[in-house]
Design a protein around this nucleic acid. Structure first.
Lengths: 245, 245
DNA sequence: CGCCTATTTGATCTGATTCAAACAATGTGG
DNA sequence: CCACATTGTTTGAATCAGATCAAATAGGCG
């Protein structure tokens, strides 16, 4: 009857998925204080140009980071879920070079930079874990760059569905090979670098190939191997193998 | 008659461009040991799948990081010059998710991970500087993502020429508004996510607009403001303003 | 010179965009 | 519970940026 096992702090779970923590480190992370706020949907948490003095930990919800062209075209850079600290980089990069928004109503814990710095000073290995987290972030950017530059819409979309599957599965958010995708086709287009119309047609292709099925905002993976093949998906870049310092 | 000012360690110069170091920290950085090796041109320093036990500091030359699609299409992710440690992320990401190659004969200093970890343990602020460096790296990826996903070839190319100008200028590698660009048009295409043929035509466009001129592997910026306007260039994402912890 | 590689040009094709309209869904207020 | 506004999805047709294929030209350089 270990009630705690199922009641894990989202940040602890996240960090433990990429780094081995000691019990003391675990409790130090849990002790991190801050203020909880509800955001969204379609509201921004931080926007380009801001100089935040706190980071936000997602407790619940779906957020994305994005940039906008001077003619107003949006590119989504990444998606984030419970346990992620999407603006952790603000700890060392004073001014935001992109924005962070919520796709669905999300619960965020805002933690002061000073509190995080304190935590790292007392537990340098937690600092390493955070650093590693931001490095994985960058690794995901690299993989997306490869897709944006060198893969066509169909492969790119298949790849994204694979990535989301793996990441959400690690959070226990996949059921019956399906997960919720709270995105409009326009959002999807902003992530894939294509137009909403083309998203629609590409989606139909993947459905036609029996790789996925979509009903009521849920993506069901009907042929994992096929999807992986089409998306050229290899999860190495997610660096999920946990590592100690 | 400060002979040292002109004879600066490349890593010190680099770190000081993004972070304020104390004299002690400076000399600790200079004391970093390793082995010097000559690489390239067109040779790889590390490749995807490797598990390096050292990082490499560029003393001299031009390197790039890249990934390759399963059908062999290459996407260049970033360019690196003297002072950069392009594979610094290997300190916390065991397996390389991309490759690092030299575009021209380059002199690299290979420094053991253990030496870097030592340095950071003794000087935690240097660790912050390194972390900040990898975060800036990620910021550049984000900006490239925006270009790859949302800007056409012409804007993307103009943007890249702006970025290279600013970065090389900071290294004193710009003379008479011109800098050396040791890349074939195929390389340029791999960086911009377009074909070599289209690189050629796009280059001609920019030349036709009197924004740049190219002779013998040198890019001359003939109309900086115009180039900035076309490329929608804003250097915020380079985070060049130096910051202390 | 002759070889090799890079650049340039031309013609054609195609993945994706654009524009426009039809068609769900979902929600709101009367 | 219906009328209707609103937003998201779907379909069609025309167009375009960039890819592809192929061949010509221009540079290096042993």
């Amino acid at each position: 009857m270990d009630a705690h096992a199922s009641f894990q702090h989202p940040l602890v779970r996240k960090l433990e998925s990429i780094f081995a923590l000691t019990p003391e480190e675990r409790s130090a992370v849990v002790a991190l204080g801050g203020t909880v706020r509800e955001i969204g949907p379609d509201h921004d948490v931080v926007v380009e140009g801001d100089r935040p003095s706190e980071c936000c930990l997602i407790l619940d919800g779906w957020c994305c980071r994005y940039k906008v062209t001077s003619v107003g075209k949006r590119q989504i850079l990444s998606f984030h879920f419970a346990g992620d600290i999407p603006d952790l980089q603000s700890l060392h990069l004073r001014v935001m070079d992109h924005s962070l928004g919520a796709m669905v109503p999300s619960r965020l814990l805002f933690v002061a930079h000073s509190a995080i710095r304190d935590l790292i000073r007392r537990h340098p290995r937690i600092g390493d874990a955070f650093w590693r987290d931001t490095l994985i972030d960058a690794a995901v950017f690299r993989e997306w760059m490869l897709g944006l530059g060198r893969r066509d819409a169909r492969r790119r979309m298949a790849h994204m569905f694979c990535e989301l599957f793996v990441r959400l599965d690690a959070l226990g958010m996949v059921e019956e090979r399906a997960y919720g995708l709270p995105l409009s086709q326009a959002d999807l287009g902003d992530a894939l670098g294509i137009t909403p119309v083309h998203v629609n047609r590409t989606l139909q292709e993947l459905r036609g190939e029996r790789l996925i099925a979509v009903h009521r905002g849920r993506v069901e993976v009907r042929d994992w191997d096929g999807l992986v093949r089409v998306g050229e998906f290899d999860d190495t870049y997610l660096h999920l193998r946990k590592e100690a310092a």
